[in-house]
């Protein structure tokens, strides 16, 4: 059996700490391509993830969830802020050191059709990381690849097939296998099920859960489907327009959401009982442009409880209860 190098040390140790992460994308215009504005995709985001836990990251499309994930892996360079992984700030690492860190953190992509190289047999895709890092002999890499394929429920003969010969769910398993082949400690799941049929979603979620408990993995689970997040997360962070507005344990968030935005999201979850009456918070309007976010609290333009102060001063992200963080003037 292919063994993970790091032990199954259940602990409360922080594996990841993101501090004041900022990513502005410059907007260039004109003949000289001067920077005229910035898209504030991620604006001062901080959170921690403990070893072995799953942090869910939810929010509307375009709120910066994916940018947070990709910045943490340095697939996108952060504008400022630090990413502390395993007690090391990786936001400035270069070359060899960064390459070594990449063995420990991996990503599973949203679109299973775009995430596999169409010209390579999938076995080669799964082995890619092993080849890049020169792990073991070619023979050993091949064995590891076969082993990992089995974890995600694929057969040996699948290895030599090409991506176009697989269904979306199978491709997503291959994507998971590729991420796991390097034995990472931390995996970012960037909406891994949102492109799949509902019947396949639960399969993939269960695979992710099984693998997590078996190998003591830590997940950042990015999604916009609150039911999926509830199923898989230990803690949940809610993002709105580049900022985290609320973060707490899953049970607390789903039972007692404090931020009006979270409440609105919760009331949008469909429930199967048509006779059940519930209080609904319906948001009006669109998410404002991250090019020019509103002053004060970014949510005040759509907030049903907006007060004067909301449009003037930005609320501080603070801990109202034990492990329940929120950025809203209502809770101050």
């Amino acid at each position: 059996m292919y063994q993970y190098q790091h032990g199954k040390t259940g602990s409360n140790r922080e594996l990841i700490r993101v501090e004041n992460l900022v990513k502005y994308f410059p907007v260039r215009a004109g003949l000289l391509q001067r920077v005229v504005n910035h898209v504030r995709a991620v604006d001062d985001v901080s959170f921690t993830i403990k070893e072995g836990e799953t942090l869910g990251l939810v929010g509307e499309s375009g709120c910066g969830k994916t940018t947070v994930g990709r910045t943490m892996l340095r697939l996108i360079e952060p504008t400022s802020g630090s990413i502390i992984f395993d007690d090391r700030d990786i936001s400035q690492l270069k070359g060899r050191e960064m390459k070594d860190i990449r063995r420990e953190m991996q990503i599973i992509f949203q679109d299973p059709y775009a995430s596999l190289d169409p010209r390579m047999p999938v076995g080669d895709s799964v082995m890619e990381g092993l080849n890049i890092h020169g792990i073991g002999t070619p023979q050993r890499r091949f064995e590891i690849m076969m082993e990992v394929m089995k974890w995600v429920g694929l057969e040996e003969y699948h290895a030599r097939r090409y991506p176009h010969e697989f269904s979306g769910g199978q491709r997503q398993r291959i994507g998971i296998a590729r991420a796991l082949a390097l034995m990472p400690k931390f995996v970012i799941c960037d909406e891994p099920v949102s492109a799949l049929d509902v019947s396949i979603q639960s399969q993939i979620l269960n695979i992710l859960k099984e693998i997590q408990s078996e190998f003591h993995l830590t997940y950042l689970f990015i999604a916009h489907n609150l039911s999926v997040v509830e199923h898989i997360s230990d803690r949940v962070a809610v993002m709105y327009l580049g900022k985290v507005v609320e973060m707490t344990t899953r049970d607390e968030l789903y039972r007692n959401p404090l931020h009006p935005y979270t409440k609105a999201l919760m009331s949008a979850i469909p429930i199967p009982n048509p006779h059940l009456k519930r209080e609904r918070t319906i948001l009006t309007g669109d998410i404002p442009s991250p090019l020019n976010p509103p002053n004060g609290c970014r949510f005040h333009t759509r907030c049903p409880f907006a007060m004067d102060i909301c449009s003037q001063e930005e609320p501080v992200f603070h801990e109202t209860k034990l492990d329940h963080w929120v950025a809203c003037w209502l809770t101050d």
Binding site: R70, L73, L75, M98, K99, R102, R103, M105, Q106, I107, F109, Q110, D111, A114, S115, L116, D117, P118, R119, S125, E128, G129, I132, H133, G175, R178, L182
Partner: peptide, 26 residues
């Protein structure tokens, strides 16, 4: 901009590897 190129970067591939093995063939 394809995800499989991002995946190669996340796996630790360097610029030349990615250009010659992933981008150019496709």
């Amino acid at each position: 901009e394809m995800d499989y190129v991002s995946a190669s970067r996340a796996l630790g591939g360097d610029m030349t590897q990615i250009l010659f093995r992933r981008i150019l063939p496709n």
